[in-house]
Amino acid sequence: MRKDHYRGSFRRVVAMSPCYPRHSFQQRKGTLRTFFGKPITRRSFEKASDKRLRRTFKMFRTRYILDMALGPAPFDPDELADVPVLLASTRDEFYHDIGGKWADNLRDSAFKRWIIKKTSILMGLRKESYDLWKYAADKIDPEHTMGRSIGDTQIRRWVAWAGDSAPGDTWMLEFTKSTKPALHCDELRYIFGVHTVDIRDEKKAETSRILNDWVQSFIKTGEPKGLPQYRAQSEDDSRTVMCFNLQTGECTLEPGTLDYLYPAYPMDLDEMGF
């Protein structure tokens, strides 16, 4: 979608749980050079063995375990083309992360509070906003604070920023569940209609049909059926989110489910250090 890449080959975008590194490759290139032991050039990579490349990336990935090791950065929604975007995230993206589960299950409450706060700030949450963010996160789910922090840092902060600042029209979709967390990728089998052929569970099949038809309406028309644009149209309005329950197929319009992220994370390049 970047303006310098866009050539008009598509008319609208469904962006599902987009994720970005917090630092540019240029800032991390020296680390990769150290692990690789050779110049960071196309020729060097082409000549290297598969074993060496796998070992190098494993070390590099471990060094940047708190976010994406590689990818386009910095993310700047102002650089996007003026194309309608349907943004989506799951409410509980990374509750299943191993490190997050470990921290959330700690019995030592003092150490648990310290490690969650320390890690969250290292991942990019503003130090001065942590208490406010934690209050909001605990209102959603007090049992998975670290899991929520990982999901908010890796994905939902970028979703919120794009929703507010992309040049084109934006709409917001949030996947939920009634009796269990809505995790990263939980929506894929529904959104692509896989469950519609699963005759063993008619409820899943019907939910899949509802979601698949709804997304297709956006693909065909450029406007999601029954969903106002995400951005508030006036000072009296709030950001509007379509919450889709993957277990029941119920769609509800909810105000500002991502609002707690705006004061918690830097959403301009200067504050992010670019």
Score class of each variant (00 low, 15 high):
Gly151His: 03
Lys118Ala: 13
Ile191Asn: 00
Leu253Ser: 05
Phe75Gly: 03
Trp114Lys: 09
Tyr130Ile: 01
Asp4Trp: 00
Leu122Ile: 11
Pro142Gly: 05
Lys3Pro: 09
Trp214Arg: 08
Ala136Trp: 00
Val241Tyr: 01
Arg209Ala: 11
Pro255Asp: 12
Ile40Val: 14
Tyr64Ile: 05
Lys134Thr: 02
Pro224Ala: 07
Asp78Thr: 04
Ser149Thr: 05
Arg189Pro: 06
Gln233Ala: 03
Thr257Ile: 04
Met1Lys: 11
Ile219Gln: 14
Ala103Tyr: 07
Leu211Trp: 00
Gly124Ile: 10
Leu66Cys: 04
Leu32Asp: 07
Pro74Leu: 05
Asp97Val: 02
Gly99Leu: 09
Arg12Phe: 11
Asp237Met: 04
Cys251Ser: 06
Arg2Phe: 09
Ile140Leu: 15
Glu128Met: 06
Ala48Ile: 11
Thr207Ile: 14
Asp141Pro: 00
Gly256His: 07
Leu87Gly: 03
Phe10Asp: 05
Ser120His: 06
Asp152Glu: 08
Ile210Val: 13
Gln154Trp: 15
Phe192Arg: 14
Glu143Arg: 06
Thr207Trp: 08
Thr240Asn: 05
Gly8Phe: 04
Lys38His: 11
Asp237Val: 01
Ser234Leu: 00
Thr145Asn: 04
Tyr95Ser: 10
Arg126Met: 09
Lys117Ser: 08
Tyr265Ile: 03
Pro21Cys: 06
Thr207Gly: 02
Met68His: 11
Ser234Thr: 02
Ser234Asn: 10
Tyr230Ile: 08
Asp169Arg: 11
Lys134Arg: 13
Gly30Val: 00
Leu32Trp: 02
Cys19Met: 14
Arg2Ile: 00
Arg200His: 13
Lys38Pro: 06
Lys204Arg: 14
Lys225Asn: 08
Trp133Ala: 13
Thr176Gln: 05
Thr207Glu: 08
Asp236Arg: 15
Lys139Cys: 10
Arg7Lys: 10
Ile219Val: 14
Asp97Leu: 12
Asp152Asn: 09
Ala88Gly: 15
Arg42Ala: 14
Trp114Ser: 09
Tyr260Cys: 04
Ser24Thr: 03
Asp236Ala: 15
Lys117Trp: 06
Arg28Pro: 03
Thr31Lys: 07
Trp114Arg: 09
Lys180Val: 01
Ala103Asn: 05
Ser129Leu: 08
Gly124His: 10
Asp4Thr: 10
Asp186Cys: 06
Pro39Gln: 04
Gly273Ile: 04
Leu188Trp: 15
His23Met: 15
Pro84Phe: 02
Met1Trp: 13
Tyr262Ala: 11
Ala160Asn: 11
Glu174Phe: 03
Ala15Gly: 09
Glu202Ile: 13
Asp78Ile: 01
Ser149Trp: 02
Arg148Lys: 12
His5Tyr: 08
Arg209Met: 07
Asp104Ala: 07
Ile115Lys: 11
Cys19Ser: 13
Lys127Glu: 15
Phe10Glu: 03
Trp158Lys: 00
Asp169Phe: 01
Ala15Glu: 12
Gly147Arg: 08
Ser238Leu: 05
Arg12Leu: 06
Ala73Trp: 01
Ile98Gln: 13
Phe192Val: 02
Phe175Cys: 03
Leu53Ala: 03
Ser120Lys: 07
Thr221Leu: 13
Arg7His: 12
Val14Tyr: 13
